[in-house]
Design a protein around this nucleic acid. Structure first.
Length: 611
RNA sequence: CGGGGCGUGGCUCAGCCUGGUAGAGCGCUCGGUUCGGGACCGAGAGGUCGAAAGUUCAAAUCUUUCCGCCCCGACCA
């Protein structure tokens, strides 16, 4: 641990002289660059953004682009050190790959197109296309395919801590959603699925250690793999209203999933048998919505209706677009990611009104699955019908007739519509029963994604030709995994979780300093001398110490110290006459008198306990 | 990309509706008094009012275009 700390502050172990000089020069508040602000900056909305600005950690350069000032840099280095230690502990080897990538490599995987406008692109002087890396599957795979030949070389776990670029449609919330950020991304290379399972498990356990050490409370949830491809993925989520994801958790059994994946148990509905053996059309003038039809005479309650949504999906492999009808129970909202996943689509969008009319001959509000295929065929189109599982076995339902202001009743889905496939398409809601256990109820929370691990499988190795010879001398694609952590998001999440009205309360392991010494009156020699002595002793004890030697009133110093969130403060004041100082705990705001001879040991014990 | 808001000293904002040539608080500099929870008094420095074009005798203020930033939505490995 000591060696690790030394690496983080390269000058310390080199020479005693250097240590004293540099430290004494740069860790004094009077010279250290900490531009605190008295008022909340106008542009900041979320707590972490406000505090990072106010406490002098960051400054904004452009939308979603931030400069990290010395305090933030120190936090960054501490987080990265934890990342390195935990990656190294599971056999990870650190790389450093280019952020500037040629177009060709991204075309091999197909993601030059898939990434769309989210990718920053540029041309060099010769006119060749380049991009700024959003993630590094392609580049690592390119190295693997050239250099890895035999199963004997596997497994490999490669990682880097690198800047990523994403042209977010809407950067927001300070460091939570930015266009340039630092990511620890790791990639595993295995011979087979069993190897991947092991690598994935190693990463998962390392992630638990990392986030725990960083002072975050988090949930591990099942998630969609999305454009990354692959078979399984887990997200590491911090519950906070500043987050943009929604997750569902079950207190009873610990089930947790992103809403894009979450399922629940619904009460069984026993339909009355249909009175007819075919759907019956009836006029519904003025009815446009599910709601309208619930109150229309001869209509149906929402859970007895079939909602029909027309989407256009882009195939993830061929990039071809096609129409799809998504069928849900009338009172169930669609989750678009679930639809995309079910279709194997890279993206889906609602069809435009004209497209709908051309396809089905009616407008939204009167659409239905009955006869939709034939309608589409007449229009020279194909349409795939995919139905939510909650509709399975339902009969005597009501839905649109594909004829404006007409509906059908007595619809039996399996008989009258015969969907091409069934899938979980609906968005679940808080309070629904957990599917994973008997007793639990699901709660939905807002959460911030701080890490995401994927079982990629052979998506990249196949498309990019990364193969090795297995034990039988047979050429097989390498089985890959991909594992990311957002460094700034850890920083911001820690603040979202740990702050009060006075400012940040850093978790000890990632605080920019372990302790701040506040000399209440710098002009009093006795206080100043005692502060200086403590400063030197604490540094010698291996702590990161900030000495507040500014010629300011005590109140200003206390406010600033609280704001920037150093876990411990030693106040050198009047009690110095009796040989005592105060030890202030930022988190609990408890202050205790401690003898000068004892304070170094006390602080050392407290601060290092958090490592 | 759709909707909304905002751009005025370093920061937070007023002035704009009703044109007449720029203000406050905080911060900063100097002097003095203070000195354990963002002190007080006095004296200062600091602004092409986001940019361009237009209207006008005259534009921070009115008009047009553009740029930037924030929020909601869409989107989001």
């Amino acid at each position: 641990m000591r060696a690790a700390r030394a690496r983080q502050c390269p000058f310390i172990p080199l020479a005693i002289f250097a240590t004293r000089r540099l430290s004494i020069t740069f860790m004094r508040w009077s010279q250290f660059f900490i531009p605190t602000l008295r008022e909340d900056p106008a542009d900041a909305e979320v707590v972490s953004h406000k505090l990072l600005l106010r406490a002098g950690f960051v400054r904004q350069l452009a939308a979603g682009i931030y400069s990290y000032l010395p305090l933030a840099e120190r936090v960054r280095l501490k987080i990265e050190q934890i990342l390195r230690e935990e990656m190294d502990a599971i056999g990870g080897q650190e790389f450093f790959l280019p952020a500037l990538n040629p177009r060709e490599i991204w075309e091999e995987s197909g993601r030059w197109t898939v990434m769309g406008d989210n990718m920053f692109r540029l041309k060099d002087r010769k006119g060749a296309d380049l991009c700024l890396g959003m993630t590094h599957e392609e580049i690592f795979t390119a190295i693997a395919r050239h250099e890895l030949r035999s199963y004997k070389q596997l497994p490999q776990v490669w990682y880097q801590i690198q800047t990523k670029f994403r042209d977010e449609p809407r950067p927001k919330s300070g460091l939570l959603r930015v266009r340039q950020f630092i990511m620890k991304d790791a990639y595993s290379f295995d011979v087979d699925q069993a190897g991947l399972d092991k690598s994935f498990k190693d990463q998962r356990e390392a992630y638990i250690k990392i986030f725990t050490r960083c002072g975050l409370k988090f949930a591990i949830v099942e998630a969609s793999s999305g454009a990354m491809g692959g078979s399984a993925s887990n997200e590491f989520m911090v519950k906070t209203d500043a987050g943009e994801d929604l997750i569902a958790t079950c207190e009873a059994c610990g089930y947790a999933a992103n809403l894009e994946k979450a399922t629940s148990r619904l009460p069984v509905i026993n339909d009355e048998p249909a009175t007819t053996n075919a759907p019956e059309e009836f006029p519904t003038p003025g009815v446009r919505t599910i709601e309208d039809l619930t109150t229309f005479p001869g209509g149906a309650s929402a859970e007895r209706q079939i909602k029909t949504l027309v989407y256009v999906g882009t195939d993830a492999n061929t990039n071809e677009q096609s129409f799809v009808l998504a069928l849900l129970r009338g009172d169930h909202p669609l989750h678009e990611t679930k639809l995309a996943d079910a279709l194997g689509a890279s993206q889906v969008r609602p069809a435009h009104p004209e497209e709908i009319r051309d396809l089905l001959g009616a407008s939204a509000g009167s659409l239905g699955g009955v006869g939709a295929r034939q309608q589409a065929k007449r229009a020279g189109q194909d349409v795939r019908i995919i139905a939510d599982r909650a509709l399975q076995g339902r009969r005597n339902m009501t839905t649109g007739a594909n004829k404006d202001e007409h509906h059908l009743r007595g619809v039996e889905i399996e008989r009258d519509i015969r969907p091409d496939s069934w899938a979980d398409l609906r968005t679940i809601a808080s309070g629904e029963r957990c599917l994973n256990c008997e007793a639990g109820t699901l709660e939905v929370f807002k959460a911030l994604e701080v890490g995401h691990i994927f079982k990629l499988g052979t998506k990249y190795s196949v498309s990019m030709g990364a193969t090795i010879l297995d034990q039988n001398g047979k050429e097989v694609p390498i089985v890959m995994g991909s594992y990311g952590i957002g460094v700034e998001r850890i920083m911001a999440a820690a603040i979202e979780l740990h702050h009060d009205a006075d400012g940040i309360i850093w978790p000890r392991a990632i605080a920019p300093f372990d302790v701040v010494i506040t000399i209440t009156n710098i002009k009093q020699a006795e206080m100043k001398d005692a502060g200086e002595r403590l400063y030197a002793e604490l540094q010698r004890a291996g702590l990161d110490v900030l000495l507040d030697d500014r010629d300011e009133r005590a109140g200003v110093k206390f406010k600033d110290a609280d704001l920037i969130g150093i876990p411990y403060r030693i106040t050198v004041g009047k009690k110095i006459a009796e040989g005592a100082v105060e030890l202030f705990d930022r988190a609990t705001k408890q202050s205790t008198d401690v003898g000068l001879d004892e304070v170094v040991r006390r602080v050392q014990g407290l601060a290092l306990a958090g490592r």
